[in-house]
Design a protein around this nucleic acid. Structure first.
Length: 290
DNA sequence: CTGTGTTCCTGTTCGC
DNA sequence: TGCGAACAGGAACACA
């Protein structure tokens, strides 16, 4: 369930249960996800206290009291839930099905279990020295946080200038902006009325100045992410938030998954189209996104 | 360096 | 109802 708003929602849900708590025991139910778990993963976590739970891009980072950090990525289908340790008080309503892909169980000293479930196993968990995270190859090249002041019009103008790739491809590139994924890129481009197919460089003048549509893009990105965050993220399928409730931003999608629907832009008579760009679905309105 | 395509894995949905 | 194909929120890697 994982673009920036979903990962941040997970972080906020887990933080009260994890920050300041101690990991009593870790159950590893397989030796790898997308990557092998680190050597002695469970042993190295046992007895560690969690000082802080942070997010960078789509990564969750738990800083531990031994100067190491547990880094977690949810991939495409990863999720966390919090269970009571009490043997009888088993999972909530839709029980056994989810247990099939419970790969990691963190037993916390206050008597709860944090369970990581990931059917497709595209997620990963790593252990890295806290002060070396910035130098790690996964983090070294990450771009700006889209909700930070670093994402502004001049930044995008500089990044887009001279680039022939479609603007959608650049927005998905984590080395430029870190945290956007397929849904929110489609949604942001619709809000900015920019065609996802347009060459990124065509949004900048020869002199390197942003053209009018580009001037709308950073705010459109921030708006859609803030709106999604406020809604607790998007729950495709039956993905749940930590507390079991559903994020509801999927009801606010203007284009994603809405092929054939009327464009929601006021006054626009267009119909949402679906095309494939570098192997992934793009949804947009050919009438008001140019 | 740039841009595109493939791959990892399982589950769900869609069309016949 | 059954069955195969298409598709799914990510990102690393191979290749032209």
């Amino acid at each position: 369930m994982p673009e920036l708003p979903e990962v941040e929602t997970v972080r906020r849900g887990l933080a009260p249960a994890l920050v300041g708590a101690t990991i009593a025991l870790v159950e590893l139910r397989r030796h790898d996800l997308r990557l092998p778990f680190p050597e002695r993963f469970a042993a190295r976590l046992q007895g560690r206290r969690i000082l802080e739970l942070r997010r960078r891009a789509k990564y969750l980072i738990a800083d531990l009291d031994d100067a190491q950090s547990l880094i977690m990525h949810l991939g495409m289908s990863g999720s966390f839930r919090i269970d009571d340790e009490t043997p009888g008080a088993f999972r909530r309503e839709n029980g056994k099905k989810s247990a099939a892909h419970d790969h990691v169980v963190f037993h916390i000293d206050h008597g709860k279990r944090i369970v990581y479930n990931d059917p497709r196993r595209f997620g990963c968990m790593l252990l890295v020295a806290t002060d070396e995270i910035g130098a790690d190859k996964r983090f070294r090249d990450l771009g700006v946080e889209p909700l930070s002041d670093a994402l502004d019009v001049p930044f995008l103008a500089g990044a887009f200038q001279g680039r022939a790739a479609p603007v959608k491809a650049l927005l998905l590139d984590q080395r430029l902006i870190a945290g956007l994924g397929n849904i929110y890129v489609c949604e942001a481009l619709h809000r900015a009325h920019i065609s996802p197919l347009r060459a990124a460089g065509s949004l900048v003048t020869a002199g390197g100045r942003p053209k009018a549509p580009l001037a709308r893009l950073p705010q459109a990105i921030k708006d859609v992410l803030s709106d999604a965050l406020r809604a607790g993220g998007s729950s495709l399928r039956d993905h749940r938030q930590i507390d079991g409730s559903l994020g509801y931003f999927q009801h606010s999608f203007r284009v994603y998954g809405r092929e054939g629907a009327a464009c929601p832009t006021p006054g626009c008579k267009g119909t949402i189209a679906r095309v494939v760009q570098s192997g992934r679905s793009t949804f947009y309105c050919p009438a008001c996104q140019r």
